[in-house]
Design a protein around this nucleic acid. Structure first.
Lengths: 371, 371
DNA sequence: CGATAACATGGTATCGATACCATGACCGAG
DNA sequence: CTCGGTCATGGTATCGATACCATGTTATCG
């Protein structure tokens, strides 16, 4: 350290030694008073107060300050509290970079949100936002930070320095996954769990959600159930599969209207087409792959003066805020995205700590409302 | 000094000198071969490769590696490219903590998203997500990172270490603002610009948006314009004010239906109430404070067999994905939230660089569709 | 009363990248 | 052939917090 670092090279060792001595006596005697020459010690040089500064003010060593602020038992309670109070009073805030460097940790998890620039994409809405909420909350409670990357088109510029990655987007497939996987960091993905391979995937239990809807329709003795959505998305395929298989156990085969976009107008259009058919062939229960589609279905049915739910029942998926506040209130399969975020966060934290983590399905729950 | 730092104190100066010599010859001779004893140099000790490692492999000094990787002109082009290639081949990635510590920068901006746990809140939807998209994109292009904090109830645990803060939430009021302001970091807020004080606020030009709707209604010779929303939110108040004032210039006074929540069912209910009135007193043009409300209005009007837009025109605000894909497609005032995010990011970057930045209004634009 | 343990605290090196200053190589000019 | 200058590169200290080991201090016991 060479007390007067800046002078070294022009002044010989003896002088350095002298400075040392002086510093030592300093520490022993003044402890609080502001005599002596503080010029030498760069205190407010950088504008930011450091542990060393606190140490000097408190008349202790830097390491003691470090321990005190970390609430270490090694430091006498009285000293500890005194230093903590001092730090607070001085508005001290730790230099995270220094700590991270020394500890070789960053206490940071990168979250990559894939947003394709296309509007009207399936991942629209507040979907990722609620997941983010859960993730952020859980990580924060464990004193981890969230480093957000929103990926549109280009490669996600290295979310370097994170200890783990959470990927929200198009699930396990996709190029993004490849990229991220190559970083060799703990990784958890939101999406369809079915095709997880050996990756940690967290997602809603779409299959069971579909099955619940099927059972609901069966209870109501519906004869001509129908699924409407776009099976090219893994989640939807699972929803349909659960729906179909549960119906099959009772000898029913649902009708499938595929390639319906995730918009309400697509739902309107598809339904109008259906309404062109003879009344005794039309579905009497429609399960839509998303709330938006379901809303469109409801609208089209009402236009045609079909009574809901008597003549035709409609169930959506996601149970977004829209569903609950629509008129009539839409029945929908609820998935707890916030909780999904929490689980994702726990998974990566587990991986960071070296635990083995497995994929997990989150329960879904049919919420019956007016349709 | 003390070449073999780790050994100092147990080994005398002569040995240190010896190590020096050996190291030097190393550099001169092998340059690529892997002889010599690398044991001394902690190479793969931590598992992560450092600049010093690269330097040893390349037979140059650490500082040269640093310069090369930063594309400094000080390093000979050939050397520079050789080192960059080497770094790439070795999968080197810089220790950001070390860099940040040395440079006293973190290249990080904290984004605090206020999400009140209440569902059906005005900030629902993908609103903040699009802002986040813009923010993340712009910051990433300037090699800044986004540190995300989602604030629900408790205080946002110190988003320390960021160089600036962006606040997305309830605008300039709110306790969150107070908290954040006390950190004395560059700060930009999303919200109603009117009440910015001396803060940097970025927001849509709600007033002009309202005025555009007014002019549109005037063009169509509407006689009984009406605003529907909840004025207790600053944005809505501005939308209404712009609407009202522009109409006033033509001698018209809009009707105000206040306290309508931001949901479609609230829109439905409010509209049904209106429909209970004599036909010649009902509005012939409704400007809703949000798309969700507008959707409800449309629904209720259709139920009553009122032709849209002939008998009553409906315009929403926000131009969310819902509006465009609804059936009929909803006319709405578009605000470019993505761009808003970009602007917010530029503001804080400006503040970080010491420039004075001012609040800014983003243009809004009425998109006329089928209603 | 001296020995020993428990406790409280400090010195120094260290994490990895970079700024500052210094130095060796090489070139043309005088 | 030596001098001043440019170019390329290197040594060392440094950012701030913390681990390791050492040391001083007080309590406790035979």
């Amino acid at each position: 350290m060479n007390g007067g670092g800046a002078l070294a090279g022009k002044i010989d060792g003896a002088v350095t030694a002298h400075l040392y001595t002086e510093k030592k006596s300093d520490r022993k005697t003044l402890s609080g008073s502001k005599t002596g020459r503080q010029k030498n010690q760069r205190s407010s040089t950088s504008g930011n107060i450091t542990m060393a500064d606190l140490a000097r003010i408190a008349g202790v060593s830097a390491i003691t300050v470090s321990r005190a602020l970390n609430n270490s038992e090694l430091v006498n309670r009285a000293t500890r509290e005194r230093i903590q109070e001092l730090a607070h009073r001085q508005g001290y805030s730790m230099n995270v970079s220094a700590r991270n460097l020394k500890l070789k940790r960053t206490h940071t998890v990168a979250v990559i949100v894939e947003m394709k620039p296309t509007p009207e994409r399936p991942m629209s809405g507040s979907y990722p936002l609620e997941l983010l909420g859960g993730i952020a909350q859980e990580l924060a409670s464990r004193e981890f930070s969230v480093l957000l990357s929103v990926r549109t088109d280009q490669l996600p510029l290295s979310a370097q320095s994170a200890e783990a990655v959470i990927l929200l987007g198009q699930g396990v497939g996709g190029e993004a996954m490849q990229q991220v996987a190559s970083w060799n960091l703990p990784l958890a993905v939101w999406g369809a769990v079915g095709i997880s391979g050996d990756r940690v995937v967290v997602g809603s239990d779409n299959i069971d959600g579909g099955a619940q809807v099927a059972r609901y329709f069966l209870e109501q003795r519906r004869q001509r159930p129908c699924f409407m959505g776009d099976l090219s998305y893994a989640e939807n395929e699972e929803r349909f599969r659960g729906f179909r298989d549960a119906l099959a156990q009772h000898g029913l085969t649902p009708r499938l209207i595929d390639h319906v976009d995730f918009t309400s107008s697509a739902g309107v259009r598809a339904t109008r087409t259906l309404l062109g058919e003879p009344a005794d062939q039309r579905p009497d229960a429609i399960f839509a792959g998303s709330d938006l589609i379901a809303l469109g279905v409801v609208q089209a049915l009402r236009e045609a003066d079909i009574r809901i739910p008597e003549q035709c029942s409609v169930v959506g998926f996601d149970d977004t805020a829209l569903a609950a506040s629509a008129e009539p209130a839409l029945s929908s399969v609820h998935q707890d995205l916030y909780q999904g975020g929490v689980v994702l966060a726990r998974k990566v934290l587990g991986l960071i700590e070296g635990r083995a983590e497995e994929s997990e399905l989150l329960p879904t729950r049919l919420v019956v409302r007016d349709t």
